[in-house]
Amino acid sequence: MSDDQPQPRADEEAAAGPLRGIRVIELGQYISGPYASKLLADLGADVIKVEAPEGDPMRRWEGNGTMSPQFAAYNRGKRGVTLDLKSAEGLDDLLELARTADVLIENFRPGVAARLGFGPDVLHDLNPRLITCSITGFGGGGPYAKRPAYDTVISAVGAMYSQVVPADTLRPLGPAFSDLLSGLSASQAVLAALHARSERGEAGEGEHLEVSMVGSLIDFLTEAASTFLETGQVAGPDSRPRRAQAYACVGSDGKAFVIHMSVPEKFWTGLVAVLGAPELASDSRFDTREGRVHNYDALDAELKAITERMPRQHWLDALAAADIPHGPLNTVADLFDDPQVASMGLVEEITGHDGTPLRVPAPSTIFHRSGRPALHAAPGLGADNERVLSERTPA
């Protein structure tokens, strides 16, 4: 096989995955809950997504009446069931499913699950080994707790936007930070709870987990938060790039790339050589790391003025030869054509819910022993009602 061909993944063959035998009930909408359980499904868990009869609102985001690509992304690998949880029959079906489950994840507002009859205390009495996980915007208490919690609101309150949005832009930017990070935090917490339960043996009980979107952001912004609490310094969008000595440049062909010099002085001296600009090394503004941090904007302008003289590939080749940290600034359209990404087998083709071929990002972690299960598309609305509801009898 030539070096430029995609290399086979170690877990290429369909495998059970490390979470084989773990059943997860997901009562999630939009992103945070569905993303948490999608991560568990990728690891081999049997995830049963429970939706209201009208379905998760994200199903209809594209207005095509079937399944939006956003829903498909966050709900692959699951089985789908519809239940009316406001009815006695629907609640009974859910409780029977919970008897057979290891984990139940929900992202309702605080108190909603208990009001509908399946709060953590009820579920624990029903199934002491069950691990329940509630994802909320602001946690279970406090003045904001019962407010509607969407990513834009949480990303503003949790200071994420202050780290990525320039002061002169003042508009929400980027992916759904708080949704995704709280989903990631929830999946991590579930895995820890499963381990703790297994350590307690056959009689091991589950526990209730609370994950907040705003708390997940603060945990993610640990550097900025800790620095402020210790020194009073307030980080902004350019604080980390300035400290890390990271720069974005553009070649003469209009294509962008980044350079990261960090601490080792060899990267600075190597960059000066690559650029053919010895005058930068002798410039008193830039001859020390502290000077480059302090005069970040001036150096940024100097680098851009030089790199715009030659096309991007010229600089990428030269930077690679000099072993300077760098990379093309890819768009999503560029990403899967990048030779490194293409070599890693991070895209797979599966059969979509309507029978058509569908290319999807593959899980990035390789389990060399247990492997991972084959990927499956997100389920149609209520597609697995008959089969799942017939499996309610506990093993």
Rank of each mutant, 00 (worst) to 15 (best):
S37E: 14
S198M: 14
P278E: 09
R243E: 06
D168A: 00
D102A: 12
D323W: 13
K38G: 07
M213C: 02
L329W: 05
A156G: 04
I218M: 05
L316I: 15
R372K: 13
S390A: 15
S134L: 07
S284N: 11
K78Y: 06
F336Q: 10
R200A: 08
R372H: 11
L91K: 11
V347G: 11
I25L: 09
I31R: 03
D283Y: 07
A318Y: 14
R387Y: 13
V388H: 00
P328L: 11
S364M: 15
G355F: 12
I366N: 08
V250A: 10
R285N: 13
Q5L: 15
D253E: 04
L194K: 10
F108P: 01
M67G: 11
L280D: 08
E210T: 07
A145P: 09
P363H: 10
A378V: 14
P148Y: 03
D354Y: 14
G140F: 05
G215H: 04
S87M: 12
V122D: 04
G327P: 05
F138T: 00
Y144C: 10
A333I: 00
Q313F: 13
P311V: 08
R292G: 06
R312W: 09
F138E: 02
V190S: 14
L375I: 13
V164T: 04
M67L: 15
A72F: 10
L40P: 02
I48D: 03
H208W: 06
M67I: 13
S343Q: 05
F118T: 07
Q29K: 11
E230S: 15
A333Q: 09
A281P: 06
A113S: 11
L27C: 04
D151S: 03
L389F: 12
V250D: 05
A15S: 13
L104G: 02
A88N: 09
L217H: 00
T393Q: 15
V211P: 05
A113N: 09
P237H: 03
V24N: 06
K266A: 10
R60S: 14
V274P: 06
R99H: 01
G90F: 02
G21Q: 15
E223T: 13
G380V: 03
L329E: 05
G139Y: 01
E62G: 12
V47I: 09
K49E: 14
S343C: 06
S134H: 03
L40V: 02
A333L: 11
E302T: 05
G232D: 12
V272N: 08
F228P: 02
S262K: 02
A196Y: 07
E51I: 14
G327V: 01
V157W: 00
P361Q: 13
L280G: 03
R240K: 05
L130I: 11
T331Q: 14
L209C: 09
I22S: 02
